[in-house]
Nucleic acid binder design. Structure first.
Lengths: 237, 237
DNA sequence: CTAATAGTGTCTGTAAGACATTATGCA
DNA sequence: TGCATAATGTCTTACAGACACTATTAG
């Protein structure tokens, strides 16, 4: 201990006097397809944890806010712009990274199908299906992908957050294109909750909320009766 | 920029090669009295922001988790042990502290009356009443206390979190002593929500949940009909 | 007895689950 | 014409708000 008071709140603090943790952001990027949640992951090609799959992440610079760092990582590593990032939770266990002390601020973004496609075209990220309890990440063949660091834990916190908020927030619309059917909206809810829902009750609840606007158009590719397309009143950015 | 890749996720990262933010924890310690929320604050006696009021906080050491740092600050600066701390949000604006880049992880704890008294006996912290929109901190005379840094913002995020969770969580019990009346429980809800609630509906909802156990005893000091004392089934630690 | 608060009974409107029925587009 | 799915009608149950009423204690 030096003569600088560590006890007083930031008073007389010399930034070089103490070792301190590094700060990173990690992004949980989710999409909803076929009543399943999918997450975008990067395969690590260098040690430690080479071969394992990780969330896109990066260090926070001293001259950028946490939100800005998350947006930069989304742009640089995933090739996406303008997805709405929301802070999820901050993970700060001492041994969560084997090399050094790293505190990571996790961000969550929900992707529309076209954003998902754009990210995958970038070539760096891969989509994994989230399933099971405890949560696992599966590839297209159903094999479990080994996750790096505490990223399995971060993913499960993200899914919990989704489940807790979907009933009373606009979150589901962030997974959908601008125009969508009520069935597609219900599929999103079922993917997030992992259950099936009652169709008439679901329709009533959604329509009574007054957020949905019927377009009058109908879906095109249906092999049978096509459903009406809706859009959201206050477009979710 | 060095030859070390900043682009790859933590690969080959040299911790000394980059400036990085410092990490602190700040504690939002709330209590509920007289249908009002109260927060514990410390008066800063040194620049910057001397004379302003701040949340208890401190730096995170490299060998302690965020949760452990929060518990340590609670012990060292507030003189409390064993309050349940829950991570609230992480604040990382570039200019939130005038001296240096500091990312702070805010924690929230709800105090029982006896914990509140114990903290105030310690002599370092003061209780302020939270009121108004935008939120302000008032002393006993109703004068507004100037808050340091972004701590007014942190307090308002804490209150929002409380309001969002009180309906479907056990959070209200954390404000109450082991045995309490239904009126006291309703007072807590009203303090958090800033509204009045319907008494019969409130009673039914609480009793139907099956969490409350009637003790058969009644409050002692009532000047009129004394109310029954209840306790929580799964004691909130 | 009166004052004051605790605690309850009941009516009503809203909303969700269950189930059956009608509607519509395509092969 | 028949199939598959969209969309709706209706019955029932659950619960919350409103309000009035009863119960119990101190003084």
């Amino acid at each position: 201990m030096t003569n600088i008071s560590h006890d007083d709140h930031l008073d007389g603090y010399d930034p070089s006097a103490y070792d301190r943790p590094s700060v990173t952001v990690d992004l949980v990027l989710l999409a909803s397809t076929d009543r399943r949640l999918r997450a975008l992951l990067l395969r690590r090609d260098q040690p430690p944890q080479a071969g394992r799959w990780a969330l896109p992440g990066g260090f926070v610079a001293t001259d950028e806010s946490l939100d800005a760092a998350a947006a930069r990582v989304l742009r640089e590593k995933v090739g996406l712009d303008g997805a709405r990032l929301e802070q999820l939770y901050t993970f700060g266990a001492v041994d969560r990274d084997p090399r050094m002390r790293i505190v990571t601020v996790a961000y969550l973004a929900l992707l529309r199908p076209e954003q998902m496609v754009q990210a995958l075209r970038g070539g760096r990220v891969t989509a994994a299906t989230l399933d099971g309890d405890p949560l696992g990440a599966l590839n297209d063949e159903g094999a479990e992908l080994p996750l790096a660091f505490d990223h399995r834990h971060i993913l499960s916190v993200a899914c919990e957050r989704l489940r807790g908020k979907i009933d009373y927030s606009d979150l589901a619309f962030a997974f959908l294109p601008e125009r969508f059917t009520l069935r597609a909206l219900q599929d999103v809810h079922e993917a997030v909750l992992g259950t099936t829902l009652n169709k008439p009750a679901f329709r009533r609840k959604m329509l009574d909320r007054g957020q949905l606007i019927a377009t009058g158009d109908r879906e095109a590719d249906a092999s049978h009766r096509p459903a009406e397309l809706f859009r959201v009143r206050d477009a979710v950015a």
